[in-house]
Design a protein around this nucleic acid. Structure first.
Length: 502
RNA sequence: GCCGCAUUCGUCUAGAGGCCUAGGACACAGCCCUCUCAAGGCUGAGAUCAUCGGUUCGAAUCCGAUAUGCGGUACCA
C-alpha cells in the first residue's frame, strides 16, 4: 500500500447529499487507483444538528454505491477499524483541547472575550463603512488583569488563532494549479474553539488531517477560499501540509451550488426512484471528470483503472437527470435476468403496498416478461407503470381510449367481438404470441381494417393503457381466461356507450 | 464590499499552438424498424470556443484586461 491517504469527512447533519457522494467517490477512486488508503471520518461537532439517523443514511448510501473505506466506522453507531481512530470527532475532543492548549502556550492563539453582540456590532459598522468584515484583534493583546476582569464579569472566552498579517499563502492545487491568497483577506484572527469548549470546523479538519496523516485533501471547491486557513493551522501545529485538489461544484439548473431547495439532493431519494448504483456511480464520476475517450458507460472497476485526479475539470457542472436516466437504462439493460429480478422485487412490493397492484407476481412470471420489459425500464420503479396492469383484479378501461380515431363505439365493439372470437379459438389450441398474431392480422385483412386500429382497441381493452410492451406478449402474460374476460368487459362498456346512439 | 475560482452546442464533455470549416454523449427533430411504447440504426439542427487586446507565420489552446457567473468571507460544515 502506498502512503497516499485520503478521506471523506461528512457531517451527519442531513441525509447523504449528492455532492458528498461525489466527493466520496472521487476520493475512493483516487485511493483505489493509486493503491492508497481511504478513510471515513464523521465531523459531528455540530451537536445541535447531528443525528445518528443521518449517520446511518450516509453510511448506507455510500455502501449502496459500493464505496468502502479502509478506516473508519463500519456501520452507523457501530465499531470502527483503523489505527488512527477514533473517527468520530466528538470522541476526539481531548485531542483538539490538547492542540488548542499548545497553540495557546506558544502564543499562536489567544483567549477572546468579545461577545457575539459586540462582534456583530463591529461587523455591521464595517459593512456600513464599506470595509471587509474582519475581527479587529480587540483581544489579541490582553493583559493578565484585563483577562481577570473579563473572567470576573462572567464572560466565557473563545480561542482565536492568530492569522499573521501581510503574508501570501500559496499552494498548488492539483486541479486548479497555483493559487495565492493574502492573509489580509482571511477576515482576521480565527475562532477555533467555541466558548462552550467545543472545537470549530477549520480547526478540527486541520488537527484530524494531520493526526490521520492525510496526504491529499480532495474536497469541494467551496473550500478553496478556506484552504489558507488550514495551511496556517498545519504550520502552527508543526504538521506536514497535504496536497489539495478542489473539485468543481455540482450545480442546480440555474448554475448555483446544488441545494435541496432547488434540486433533489438526497442520494436515498434517487435510490428509491429505482436508479441503480452502477449507473449512479458512473454518472457521478463523469460529472466533472472524463476519461478523455468517447466511452461513457463505465463500471466501477474501469473507473478506478482510469481515474486521474489531474484530469478533473475545474468548472462547475449542472446535474442532468436526463443523462442519469439514460445511463440507468444502459445499466439496467446490462443486468442478468436473475439480478434484475432481485432488484425489481422491492419495487414490485412497493406497488403492492401502495395498492396499485393486487398481488405479487412470482419470480418466474417476472422472468418471462423480462425480454420485453428490460429495455423499457428507465428506472426500476418504472416497473409498476410498465406492467402493473397484469397484476390487478379489475381493470376498468376508459371508453374514450378504447375507440380508435377512425372508429366509433359501435364499430369498436363489433371489432372487439370478432377479435375475441378469433382469440378464443386460437388460444384454446396454443396460447403463444406467435400463434395469436397471424389470425388477428387475417381478421384485419378480411374486414379491411387497419391493424393499428384493432390492436390499439385490444390493447386498451386488455391493459387499460395506450402504451405497453408488445401486445401479444402482454396477452400471453395475462393468460387466456383473463384476456377474454377483459375483452368481454370492454365490449360491454362499448355496447352501453353505443346503445343510446340513434 | 473584499478575496478566490471559473467561462467550448440547452446540458455533460473532447480539445495541452497547425490533425478544428471544433469531435462525442444526453435532450430535441426527422427517417428506418414497428401493433403502441421503448430499445436500436441513420440523418439533422444546435458552439461568432464570454468579450476585447496582445504573443505567434498560425490561438479554442499562451498572456493581459474587461464582463458575467459561482464560491468564500460565522462561536455552520
Amino acid at each position: 500500500m502506498s502512503d497516499i491517504r485520503v478521506r471523506i469527512a461528512p457531517s451527519p447533519t442531513g441525509p447523504l447529499h449528492l455532492g458528498t457522494a461525489r466527493t466520496a467517490l472521487f476520493n475512493f477512486l483516487f485511493a483505489r487507483h493509486t493503491g492508497g488508503t481511504f478513510i471515513f471520518r464523521l465531523e459531528d461537532t455540530d451537536q445541535a444538528r447531528s443525528t445518528e439517523a443521518y449517520e446511518l443514511d450516509i453510511i448506507n448510501g455510500l455502501h449502496w454505491l459500493g464505496i468502502r473505506w479502509d478506516e473508519g466506522p463500519g456501520v452507523a453507531g457501530g465499531t470502527e477499524h483503523g489505527t488512527y481512530g477514533p473517527y468520530r470527532q466528538m470522541q476526539r475532543l481531548e485531542r483538539y483541547t490538547e492542540a488548542a492548549t499548545r497553540l495557546l502556550a506558544e502564543d499562536k492563539a489567544y483567549y477572546c472575550y468579545c461577545t457575539p453582540e459586540e462582534l456583530d456590532a463591529e461587523r455591521k459598522r464595517q459593512e456600513a463603512a464599506h470595509e471587509s468584515p474582519r475581527y479587529s484583534g480587540h483581544c489579541a493583546r490582553l493583559t493578565a488583569s484585563e483577562r481577570v476582569a473579563f473572567e470576573a464579569a462572567g464572560r466565557l472566552p473563545v480561542v482565536r488563532f492568530r492569522i499573521p498579517p501581510n503574508r501570501t499563502i500559496a499552494f498548488d492545487d492539483i486541479i486548479r494549479g497555483h493559487v495565492e491568497i493574502e492573509t489580509s483577506a482571511l477576515g482576521g484572527d480565527l475562532v477555533i474553539v467555541r466558548s462552550d469548549g467545543t472545537p470549530l470546523y477549520h480547526f478540527t479538519v486541520a488537527v484530524d488531517d494531520a493526526a490521520m496523516a492525510i496526504s491529499h485533501v480532495i474536497r469541494g471547491e467551496d473550500h478553496l477560499s478556506n484552504t489558507p486557513k488550514h495551511i496556517l493551522l498545519f504550520e502552527a501545529l508543526g504538521s506536514a501540509i497535504p496536497q489539495f485538489a478542489h473539485l468543481p461544484l455540482i450545480l442546480n439548473a440555474d448554475r448555483s451550488k446544488m441545494s435541496k431547495r432547488k434540486s433533489q439532493t438526497a442520494v436515498a431519494a434517487y435510490r428509491a426512484e429505482g436508479f441503480i448504483p452502477e449507473a449512479f456511480v458512473n454518472y457521478l464520476a463523469l460529472l466533472g471528470w472524463s476519461t478523455g475517450t468517447e466511452e461513457e458507460v463505465l463500471s466501477s472497476a474501469e473507473l478506478i483503472e482510469r481515474f486521474e485526479l489531474s484530469a478533473v475539470n475545474s468548472s462547475g457542472a449542472v446535474f442532468s437527470r436526463d443523462r442519469l436516466e439514460w445511463l440507468n437504462g444502459q445499466w439496467i439493460r446490462r443486468l442478468s435476468a436473475t439480478d434484475l429480478i432481485d432488484r425489481l422485487r422491492p419495487f414490485v412490493q412497493a406497488e403492492l403496498d401502495a395498492g396499485r397492484i393486487d398481488w405479487l407476481p412470482a419470480d418466474d412470471e417476472l422472468r418471462a416478461l423480462l425480454p420485453v420489459v428490460q429495455e423499457r425500464l428507465p428506472t426500476l420503479a418504472a416497473v409498476g407503470e410498465l406492467i402493473g396492469f397484469l397484476f390487478v383484479d379489475n381493470l376498468d378501461p376508459d371508453v374514450a381510449a378504447l375507440v380508435p380515431k377512425r372508429w366509433d363505439a359501435a364499430t369498436t365493439a363489433a371489432a372487439l367481438t370478432a377479435a375475441r372470437q378469433t382469440i378464443a379459438e386460437v388460444g384454446r389450441v396454443a396460447w403463444e404470441a406467435d400463434e395469436i398474431e397471424p389470425p388477428l392480422r387475417q381478421l384485419v385483412e378480411d374486414r379491411g381494417w387497419k391493424a393499428g386500429d384493432l390492436f390499439m382497441a385490444i390493447r386498451v381493452a386488455v391493459t387499460g393503457r395506450t402504451a405497453t410492451p408488445p401486445l401479444f406478449d402482454m396477452m400471453v402474460a395475462l393468460g387466456y381466461e383473463r384476456t377474454l374476460a377483459r375483452l368481454d368487459r370492454a365490449i360491454e362498456k362499448l355496447a352501453a356507450q353505443a346503445g343510446p346512439t340513434p
